[in-house]
């Protein structure tokens, strides 16, 4: 049995240093101790805990924070107008933000199509809430929904291409640029069509999307070319690496 010279406490046989001050135990009689006496009070086996981020707690906190503007908007709107009017838009907007930010965080799985589908549904809900408030649904069907569906398709095709390996490195960027160019062209067609049908039948097509499309296609082509020329790509990487 040893005593710590610093602390004055008696140390169990198993302690090779004082647990209080880490002063090593030097006992000339140590060798006479029988092995069974040296049994440590605790085994070496350890409990392990997976260090998982407490997502549910974070989501709960953030949801409460998100809930506050909804409650305030509904309360103010109902008090002032006697029913829900503009607060529907703010409510759906907050829900859309929540769905975009926290749904993937909560589920923690790579389900791009599922997330974007939910986003699309809530986004369409937002369009309809705005249309209901302003009393005009034509723009929803004419521009908003087709645009949203087009963006949904582009995002999912890109994700699918990347996950399947069809798109990689600079080809991904080239594809996204090309798709953006096409998106702009279709968007201009939709807008022009809407204006011509409902606002100004004499309105001409302005071709602004052509500038975007051509720029995107040139840069996309350049990216494809660089990706194909390995030496050029390596040279550019060397000069522009971050």
């Amino acid at each position: 049995m040893s005593y710590c010279v610093n602390c004055g406490v008696k140390l169990a046989e198993s302690e090779k240093s004082c647990p209080l001050c880490h002063c090593p135990v030097v006992n000339p009689m140590d060798s006479e101790c029988s092995p069974e006496k040296l049994e440590h009070p605790y085994p070496k086996r350890r409990d392990t805990i997976k260090n998982i981020i407490d997502r549910k707690f974070i989501i709960s906190v953030m949801s409460i924070i998100y809930l506050l503007p909804i409650v305030i908007c509904i309360a103010v709107d109902t008090l002032l107008r006697g029913r829900m009017t503009w607060s529907v838009i703010s409510t759906v907007s907050v829900v859309l933000c929540w769905v975009i930010v926290f749904l993937p965080y909560l589920l923690d799985k790579e389900l791009a199509m599922f997330y974007t589908s939910i986003d699309l549904i809530v986004l369409v809900g937002l369009f309809f809430s705005i249309a209901w408030y302003v009393g005009n649904y034509r723009w929803v069907w004419g521009i908003a929904i087709p645009t949203a569906i087009l963006a949904y398709v582009i995002i999912n095709v890109t994700v699918y291409g990347v996950s399947r390996g069809f798109l990689h490195n600079l080809y991904t960027g080239a594809f996204v640029l090309g798709a953006t160019g096409i998106f702009c062209v279709i968007l201009e067609v939709l807008i022009w069509n809407y204006i011509r049908r409902f606002l100004d039948p004499a309105r001409n097509f302005e071709y602004w999307s052509a500038y975007v499309f051509i720029s995107c296609i040139i840069i996309a082509g350049l990216l494809c070319y660089i990706e194909r020329k390995k030496t050029l790509k390596r040279g550019l990487e060397k000069r522009f690496h971050i």
């Binding site: 602390c7 008696k10 169990a12 198993s14 302690e15 090779k16 647990p19 440590h40 009070p41 070496k44």
Partner: peptide, 8 residues
């Protein structure tokens, strides 16, 4: 008298 779970 002191004992602990410190590793030996």
């Amino acid at each position: 008298e002191i004992e602990s779970n410190q590793e030996v």
